[in-house]
Structures are given as C-alpha cells and as structure tokens.
C-alpha cells in the first residue's frame, strides 16, 4: 500500500471507482434484459391501435429499429456526460423521475430519522437487559413483524387505522399541490409500515452484534474491573459492534429507496418504484435505466458509507490478513 496517501482516502477512491464500474455493468445488464423482453414501447403505447404500420413508424422515430448494442452505446455516451436523456414519451427523464425521487427520498428520510435511532437504542436496551422482559417482548414482536410479508403489514395497518378507526387516510398519494401538513398526515401509515418492517431487522442485528462482542474476554475483563454494566455496553462493547450495525443500517436505508415498491403500490404513493414499474410496462428504456442507476447507486453508496464507518471505528479492517 502506498504509504504517502491517506489509507482511508485511497480506499474510498478505489471503492468509488469500483462502484462506478458496477453502475456501468448494472446499466448494461438492465438494458440488455429489457431489450430481450418481448414487446416494445411502440406496441405498449399504441395498445389496441397497434397496427404493424403504426408500430413500425413509431419505432423508426424512436430509433428502436437500431440494434441494441448501438442503442446502448449511444445511451451510455450521453449518460456519461450526466445527461439521462429523453424518455420515449418526449419528456426529459429528469422531469419524469425528479418529482418521484423527491417523494421517495422524503419518505425514506423521515422513516430513517425515526427508525435508525429507535432501532439502535432498543437494540442496545435488549442487549443490556438480555433475557429480561423488554428483551423478550421486543425479540418476539420483531420476529413476528420480520416474518410477515410487508404488504400484509401494510394491509393490517390500513385496516386498523384507515378502515376500522378511520383516523388516517388509506391513500398516501401526494397530489395536486397538497400542503405539507396534509402530506405528512398521509405519510403516517406508510412510514408506520416501513418502521415495522425495517425496525425489526436493524434491532435484532444491533442486539446480536453487541451480544457477540459482549462474549469477548476483554468485556469480561471490564466487568471484573468493576465497570457498571451500562458503561460496559456503551463504552466497551458498542464501539466494536459499530461495523456490523452500520452495514445492516446501510442495507435498510438502501431498501428504503429501492425496495419499497410494494408499499408504494398499496398506499398509492408516487415514488420511484412505481415509476420503474410504469416504465417497464411501457418498455420506456431511458426511464428504466435511470431508475436502475438510482437503485444501484443507493446500494453502492450506503454500503461504501458503512464500510468507511466500520474502518474508522476499527482500523484493523484496513489491513486484512
């Protein structure tokens, strides 16, 4: 390793380079996969008016009559300049995805702001009072909420709060310039659902990570020295458990951006997931590509962040044996 550069900086740079390469590979895989799907944008859009003539005319206009390798190359060339191009409908991809991405990020940010501190806090509490009531209750309930599929959680939440109690709207759809207050109220149910889904995963992993560190001899040593249990957990065990906790948090944050399609559909929330479904149905390749890049970038970015955090908290990881 080059000693003159900062080791973490060089790690970050090389990881960024690899991330970029992954993005290109993802875009290639998605592009070719969509090209091999039956049907085309023209056939999907023309529907019952899709006579062979009309389809041919539209494909010629969109350049869909070109071989896919050529189309991919020209897409990549424009994307490399930071231009995501035009959707097949003639609107810039940025205009199509932009508002959706903003919606997704809002939902993800609010959920994360609540879920991450709550999950880690409760996870620490479970580890601290292992086997006590709080641990047993949380372990059981999180196991339950992790085991049921998310759409089921969504429907249960909706049935209780929207249909039976009629406290909250069943549709989270933000539309036609609703004010922010109403938006927030409409987002309560999807946020609650997402909380139930990701809280459990993060909480259980936090607990497990801390408990595995708690089994190490140095923790035993700290206890023998007479450190109070709370201090043992917070000062001795937690710093060494940050690595695994950070990576599970990263996975969940990436999920909040790319994996909430089902929640979006159930609550009619116009996010990127629905945009991608819509685009795949219409074979609108530029939009599909943009969505795929966003999703891939979220995973790569959050995982990179988690790795940096782990390394900062545990520099030994920079020197793998």
């Amino acid at each position: 390793m080059n000693r003159t550069t900062h080791p973490i900086l060089s790690m970050v740079l090389s990881r960024l380079g690899l991330g970029l390469l992954s993005l290109v590979i993802v875009s290639l895989v998605i592009f070719s996969a969509v090209s091999f799907l039956p049907g085309s944008y023209a056939a999907a859009i023309l529907g019952q008016n899709a006579t062979p003539e009309a389809v041919a005319a539209m494909e010629r206009q969109l350049g869909l009559d070109q071989p896919w390798a050529l189309r991919y190359a020209s897409w990549l060339a424009t994307a490399a300049t930071g231009d995501l191009g035009m959707s097949f409908s003639g609107r810039p991809v940025v205009d199509v995805i932009g508002p959706r991405l903003a919606n997704t990020l809002t939902l993800a940010a609010i959920t994360a702001a609540i879920a991450v501190p709550l999950a880690i806090g409760l996870g620490i509490a479970c580890a601290r009072w292992r086997g006590r009531l709080i641990d047993r209750v949380l372990s059981t309930t999180t196991l339950a909420s992790i085991s049921v599929p998310e759409f089921f959680v969504a429907y249960v939440v909706m049935m209780i709060f929207a249909v039976k109690l009629q406290l909250l709207p069943s549709m989270a759809g933000i539309r036609n310039g609703m004010d922010f207050g109403e938006q927030l109220i409409r987002m309560i149910l999807p946020i609650l659902t997402l909380l139930l889904v990701i809280l459990a995963h993060m909480l259980r992993n936090t607990r497990a990570a801390i408990l595995s560190v708690m089994a190490s001899p140095y923790v035993e040593m700290a206890r023998l020295k007479g450190e109070p249990e709370a201090r043992v957990v917070m000062r001795q065990a937690l710093p060494n458990a940050i690595g695994p906790i950070a990576s599970v948090v990263a996975i969940n944050l990436a999920y909040l951006i790319s994996g909430v399609v089902v929640i979006e559909v159930v609550f009619v929330y116009p996010g990127v997931g629905q945009a991608m479904i819509d685009a795949v149905r219409n074979r609108d390749v530029p939009v599909i590509q943009a969505c795929a890049l966003i999703f891939a970038a979220a995973y790569i970015g959050f995982n990179l962040l988690a790795d940096i955090l782990s390394i900062v908290s545990n520099p030994r990881l920079l020197h793998p044996r």
Binding site: Y155, S170, M171, G173, R175, N176, V265, V266, F267, V268, P270, Q274, I277
Partner: peptide, 10 residues
C-alpha cells in the same frame, strides 16, 4: 379529480 390507483385492492 382523476386519481391514479393502479392496484385493484388499493
């Protein structure tokens, strides 16, 4: 108001 709700259950 025309409101898009693609899913039948929703």
């Amino acid at each position: 108001e025309f409101i898009s709700i693609p899913d039948a259950t929703a």
